[in-house]
Nucleic acid binder design. Structure first.
Length: 263
DNA sequence: TTAATTTGACCCAA
DNA sequence: TTGGGTCAAATTAA
């Protein structure tokens, strides 16, 4: 994984440098194609590389988030399935007979996010909470609300970070197969964007905000994350730059400091 | 009344 | 044997 990251960083660095060299060459010849200036296009390419590099470096430094997880352990893909997709219990299997037939969670199709919010636009139903060994805070278990309606197998685990008191370590397992997109209506809502989520289609966003919201007085429960406080202003970013964090239409909201980019 | 959450029990993998 | 993931009855909220 570390080697892959190194190679990726090298490749992106090379790409960015090439784009910048191209920009210099083009400046000598053409200045405009009538619609978008070449400078703008090349700058966009450069931004894309720089954004990717920044994010990768952040990942390497262990500060965050949004990367597929390969190291997670746990159980997933419980077999056999208790419920049919239409939400009706299978009478052939009583709960007592079926209980315990779990399988360890597969590492594939899972990813981690470190966020100050638990919300991601999807509807989740909490189905468990567990005290984790050597952890100050319990881990909360959520499944998609539409699990039994649409057979959606998306799960997520939320655990409050001990070192960063207002952040959550969120692990997603599986993608949403239900019809509910990450609040489709909200995705077009400025307020939604202002709360730190990105729309599902690549576009340029300005002034994305994210809310640090965690209530300090009662931090034992994962559900405290629903309250809010004044948002932090994000700098302008290109969503295209963060495309690598899109996973099956589930977007990972990533704090992104545009000021740290070097072009 | 229905939906969501809580919480102890159950069970498996490590 | 134990930690962690899930279930489901009981409880709470809407």
């Amino acid at each position: 994984m570390e080697n892959n990251n190194k190679k990726l960083v090298e490749t992106l660095t090379r790409g960015r440098n090439s784009a910048m060299r191209l920009q210099k060459l083009l400046r000598r010849k053409v200045h405009d194609d009538g619609l978008v200036s070449i400078d703008d296009l090349v700058m966009e390419i450069s931004r894309s590389f720089s954004g990717s590099l920044l994010v990768l470096n952040s990942c390497n430094s262990g500060k965050f988030c949004g990367v597929p997880v390969n190291s997670h352990v746990g159980s997933f893909d419980r077999l056999p399935e208790v419920y049919s997709g239409n939400g009706v219990k299978n009478p052939a299997h009583t709960t007592k007979e079926r209980r315990g037939s779990y399988k360890r969670r597969k590492t594939i199709d899972s990813w981690i996010e470190v966020s100050e919010r638990m919300e991601d636009g999807h509807a989740w139903r909490k189905y468990g909470q567990k005290k984790i060994l050597d952890s100050k805070f319990p881990r909360c278990y959520f499944r998609c609300t539409h699990k039994y309606i649409h057979g959606c197998k998306a799960l997520k685990q939320v655990q409050k970070l001990e070192d960063e008191s207002n952040k959550f370590h969120i692990t997603y397992f599986g993608s949403h197969t239900c019809q509910s997109t990450p609040n489709t209506s909200m995705a077009l809502d400025n307020d939604f964007i202002n709360h730190g989520y990105l729309p599902s289609s690549p576009s340029t966003i300005t002034s994305i905000q994210i809310e640090p919201f965690f209530k300090q007085e009662d931090n034992q429960s994962c559900n405290d994350a629903q309250s809010s406080s004044p948002p932090l202003l994000w700098k302008e970013i290109l969503v295209d730059d963060l495309d690598i964090f899109k996973k099956d239409d589930v977007l990972t909201a990533i704090p992104f400091d545009y000021n740290t980019l070097v072009f």
